[in-house]
């Protein structure tokens, strides 16, 4: 299992010394598939790697640096667009980690710009972004209605000339989800970084990341999420974190994320049966970067939809998706 190789290399960079060419090929394929190649490159920086692997890791480091630069520029542009509104630009995920110089941002893949704004400010924000050149990505009326009615964000927007996406969230999880983290409280407690940019508080960052990984998603990209969480955890005071997680209804999830982070990336931890299933799903990738354990992966895919919405709606949503030929990857 090459995902296990990847986890081991991130936990203990010296472990790559024992890899042969097949091992390296598997490690690189898994790291690319999990979008952790930049993180891996940072972890292995300065250590001994084979001559053929070094340029691959150099490329990944440079890609990550460029992505970070570009992400900060998008944040700057969004801040510019919202100037004049009484809304703070609260960054989430990768862009926030990079802007704040956190360890979780080192080498991290960053896709879209994710921001969190108060629900009441959504119409103004939408209008300001459109005026600054962002436009809707998909014209599909079902998706649009679905997003607006049930999801925790506006339908994705893309910038007309820069071709970069922005996701504007107003809650942490979909409105239909079982847990309802208090987004307004998170916004109120956000801390300033610089240049008018804000990041969630130390504890809320973790709660937010955990919510996405364990209470929402189908664990696609879960190894990367868990790496974020592993890097964010040391900054937080455990008791404050528990209290905060409890307030957002996610204490159980935060505890599980702690155990998994310690088991996979840290010094080890006793796992429950459910933890082990999640771990098996996280490590489902072979030496060619292919997803394995198809049934388990599919089960988590179904579960993610189950968690997000009541069953009747789930049927309707999956049916609509499937009629359009959508399949889980």
């Amino acid at each position: 299992m090459s995902a296990a190789l990847l986890v081991r290399a991130l936990r203990d960079p010296a472990s790559v010394a024992a890899l042969d060419a097949t091992g390296w090929n598997g490690l690189i394929a898994a790291a690319r598939a999990e979008r952790l190649i930049g993180t891996l490159a940072w972890r292995l920086d300065g250590g001994a790697v084979p001559a053929a692997a070094a340029p691959i890791l150099d490329d990944a480091r440079r890609d990550a640096e460029r992505e970070a630069r570009q992400a900060l520029w998008e944040a700057d542009r969004a801040a510019q667009a919202l100037r004049g509104l009484d809304v703070r630009l609260l960054l989430l995920k990768g862009t926030a980690y990079v802007a704040a110089g956190l360890r979780a941002g080192q080498g991290r893949f960053i896709g879209d710009l994710d921001i969190l704004v108060p629900r009441a400010a959504m119409p103004q924000v939408e209008e300001a972004l459109m005026a600054a050149g962002w436009e809707w990505v998909k014209p599909d009326p079902y998706d649009d209605a679905y997003y607006r009615q049930w999801m925790h964000e506006l339908p994705p927007m893309i910038h007309r000339t820069r071709d970069r996406m922005i996701d504007v969230h107003h809650t942490v999880l979909p409105l239909t989800a079982r847990q309802t983290p208090d987004a307004e409280a998170m916004i109120a407690d956000a801390v300033a970084i610089t240049d008018g940019l804000y990041i969630l508080s130390t504890e809320d960052r973790i709660v937010h990341s955990v919510a996405h990984m364990l209470a929402d998603g189908d664990l696609q990209g879960g190894l990367r999420n868990l790496w974020d969480i592993y890097c964010l955890l040391p900054d937080a005071d455990p008791r404050t974190l528990d209290a905060r997680a409890d307030r957002h209804g996610l204490l159980r999830h935060v505890s599980q994320a702690r155990r998994l982070a310690a088991a996979l990336y840290g010094d080890g931890e006793r796992l429950t049966v459910w933890d082990r299933l999640v771990r098996a799903r996280l490590l489902a990738r072979d030496g060619w970067g292919r997803e394995t354990r198809k049934l388990l992966v599919f089960a988590f895919y179904l579960r993610s939809h189950w968690l997000r919405m009541p069953p009747q709606m789930l049927v309707r949503h999956l049916w609509t998706k499937w009629r359009k030929g959508h399949r889980p990857q």
Binding site: A21, T22, W24, N25, I28, A29, R32, P50, A52, A53, P55, I56, W288, G289, R290
Partner: peptide, 12 residues
């Protein structure tokens, strides 16, 4: 044969 490759291609 047996080299560390820059890229993996899959025909599946």
């Amino acid at each position: 044969r047996g080299a560390i490759a820059d890229f993996t291609v899959r025909l599946q």
